[in-house]
């Protein structure tokens, strides 16, 4: 995935079954953000792989004051990339098991 300066990782081990997983997000490279970022640390949250939209979580982070509106897209994309990777890994595990 593209280096957005925002890192998103699993905050727990993926058992491949749960649809709701814990993710952790933090800023690795502030220079890639448009707005001035207040370093608040790593943000942990749960994300439903089937029901939720990464951009909606990014919007909530903006509303909560973690990021500026101008960085919503980059945060949303970072979450989207990680979610896509998790889904891809799960599909690969399932097809390998067949």
């Amino acid at each position: 995935a593209e280096d957005t300066g925002v890192r998103v990782e699993l905050a727990e081990e993926d058992d491949g079954k749960k649809t709701s997983i814990a993710l952790r997000l933090w800023v690795e490279d502030q220079k890639k953000l448009k707005g001035k970022y207040k370093d608040s640390g790593a943000i942990e949250f749960t994300f439903d792989l089937n029901k939720e939209v990464p951009e909606a979580v990014a919007q909530e982070m903006v509303d909560s004051g973690f990021f500026l509106e101008s960085d919503m897209k980059i945060v949303g994309k970072s979450i989207r990339d990680r979610v896509a990777l998790i889904k891809w890994r799960r599909e690969r595990t399932i097809s390998r098991g067949k």
């Binding site: 933090w26 640390g41 790593a42 943000i43 979580v57």
Partner: peptide, 27 residues
């Protein structure tokens, strides 16, 4: 540890904690 919680109006919970130094990219 210094962990704070933020609950949004939509009911989502954000748990904020310091990033381990080892996980930060060198500037």
């Amino acid at each position: 540890s210094t962990t704070t919680q933020v609950v949004t109006s939509a009911g989502r919970r954000f748990i904020v904690s310091p990033v381990p130094e080892s996980r930060l990219k060198e500037q």
